[in-house]
Structure formats: structure tokens, C-alpha cells
Simulated assay, not measured.
Amino acid sequence: MAQSDRTIDYGKLMHRAMRGLIQRVLEDVSREGLPGNHHFFITFDTMHPDVEIADWLSDRYPGEMTIVLQHWFDNLVVNDDGFAITLNFGDNPEPLYVPYDSIRTFVDPSVEFGLRFESQDGEIEDEDQDEAPMQEMVEDEEPEPAQKGAAEVVSLDKFRK
């Protein structure tokens, strides 16, 4: 039997599966609300072409932004490509649209769960950032001290060739 040059792209399959996991979690939250102490820190690439945020937010966060889904959010609508949500920024409700492909990290500190997505085009992010504990990556919104515990991160880099 001849060997094929075809390979299984485990990294791409893992990315798809993990984004599907985020979709299912957010769909459940949109129907039932956040259970117990669960809350999410979601860091995404604000320069992704399908991200929709107010101009003042993209000016303030020109590369990436971390949002917190915890105490107040509204209009959470989840679809196959991403999610829309309204969040409060200093008493200013702002609608956002975040495609799954723009997500860099998804963390639920209440259960020490975290996912990190490396860029799809092969770009490697800063070596220092890869070594940074998760808490340093999600402090933009200044969570309460009890919420700053480092989460276990599942890195998908080890599945890439």
C-alpha cells in the first residue's frame, strides 16, 4: 500500500473543537444565564476583520481586548461564527460582535479552566507572553483579587507541525 502525503491536521481539528466548546457554553449561558460562580474572561484580536466594536474601543484597545462576562451583560446572541453581546463600559452599554476566529484566550477562573488559541497563520506571539501566567493576560478589566487565580491553560501549539 502506497503512503499518502496527506496528513491529519490535529492543530486545526483541536481549534475547531475548542471553538465549538466555547459556542456550546455561550449558547447555554444565553438560554440559562451564568450558573453558580462561573464567569469568563475572553481575550480577542480587535483587528480581526469581522470584529465589530465601537471606534473608541478599537482606539483604546488597538491589538487585543479582554472582556468579562460576569455581573452584567445583555443581548447575548450566539451563532456558528461568533457571538454578539452588549457590555457595560463605565455606564455606557456597547454592543460587540466577536467571531470565534478572533478569540485568543477563553478563561473561566471559577473552575481554573482556560484555552489559548495561537494564531492560525503560523504567527508566533511573543515568547514572553507564551510563558506568562493566565492571570497576567486577563487583568485588563481588573477583577477582584479573589478572581485572579491562575488558570490551567490548554495550549494547542504542541499539536502543530
Rank of each mutant, 00 (worst) to 15 (best):
Q3V: 12
T7P: 00
T7F: 13
I8N: 14
I8D: 13
I8P: 02
K12A: 12
M14P: 01
R16G: 09
M18T: 05
R19M: 09
G20P: 05
L26I: 02
L26F: 12
D28E: 14
V29A: 03
R31F: 03
R31W: 03
H39E: 03
H39W: 00
F41I: 03
T46G: 06
T46E: 05
M47H: 08
H48F: 02
P49E: 09
P49C: 01
D50L: 06
D50M: 13
A54P: 02
W56S: 06
L57H: 10
R60K: 11
G63F: 11
M65Q: 06
T66R: 11
L69G: 02
L69Y: 09
Q70C: 08
H71V: 12
V77S: 08
V77L: 11
V78K: 02
D80L: 05
D81Y: 09
D81V: 13
F83L: 03
A84D: 13
A84L: 01
I85T: 04
I85S: 01
N88D: 15
F89R: 06
D91N: 13
D91G: 09
N92Y: 07
L96V: 14
Y97R: 11
P99I: 04
D101A: 14
I103K: 01
I103A: 00
R104G: 15
V111E: 08
L115H: 00
L115K: 00
L115A: 00
S119Y: 02
S119N: 04
Q120S: 14
D121V: 03
I124T: 14
E125S: 08
E127V: 10
A132H: 11
E136A: 13
D140H: 09
E141Y: 00
E142G: 14
E142M: 15
A146Y: 11
A150F: 01
E152P: 03
V153K: 10
V154Y: 04
L156M: 10
K158M: 03
F159N: 09
